[in-house]
């Protein structure tokens, strides 16, 4: 296992569209182990996408279980993920290992359902809300060559967001 180098914007490679995974083999498992280790080594470390380490395949890992008091699916290894449904919208602050020293507000769906292959190639359904849903959408953007910088909204956007819970 190894911690891989993270590509950093303005590296243009981050802007390319990643290709579907077709082979579910030993090589894939090795890469997944490296990718996960790289994610955990990074600041924040709740998600990573393969193109961030220069491997342009549709693979992402999200694990928000370190965050207290939120709903999550544990460590999600998402291969060829596809979002099926979106629900609600929320502004939240994001940063990215590929964009050091900047955080900004982004609008994301609050609740999503998705389908993705697991490392064995089986199709799995997931339901994600809140922080985890945000992380999944951020990672899936990487697979399409999009950074959170492409989705920034004004800092004052917060004004339109009044919490309704509690």
């Amino acid at each position: 296992m190894a911690v891989l180098d993270i590509l950093k914007y303005p590296d243009e490679a981050l802007k390319q569209i990643s290709q579907p995974v077709e082979q579910f083999d030993e090589q894939l498992l090795c890469f997944l182990a490296d990718l996960e280790q790289t994610m955990r080594a990074g600041p924040g470390g709740v998600g990573i996408a393969a193109p961030q380490v220069g491997y342009f395949k549709r693979i992402a890992i999200v694990d928000v279980s370190v965050k207290p008091k939120i709903k999550h699916n544990g460590c999600m290894i998402l291969i060829n993920p596809e979002i099926k449904t979106w629900d609600g919208m929320k502004v939240g602050r994001e940063g990215c290992m590929s964009v050091p020293d900047y955080t900004g507000n982004v609008i994301r769906a609050e609740k999503i359902t998705l389908q993705a292959n697991n490392p064995q190639g089986e199709l799995i359904d997931y339901e994600c809300i809140g922080y985890e849903a945000r992380a999944v959408q951020h990672e899936m953007d990487h697979l399409d060559g999009l950074l959170f910088l492409d989705r920034l909204v004004s800092r004052r956007m917060d004004l339109f967001k009044r919490k309704v819970y509690k």
Binding site: G92, R93, Y131
Partner: peptide, 11 residues
Amino acid sequence: IDVTPIDIMIA
């Protein structure tokens, strides 16, 4: 007054 924690998601 509304106080909200800012939960920054870095990924």
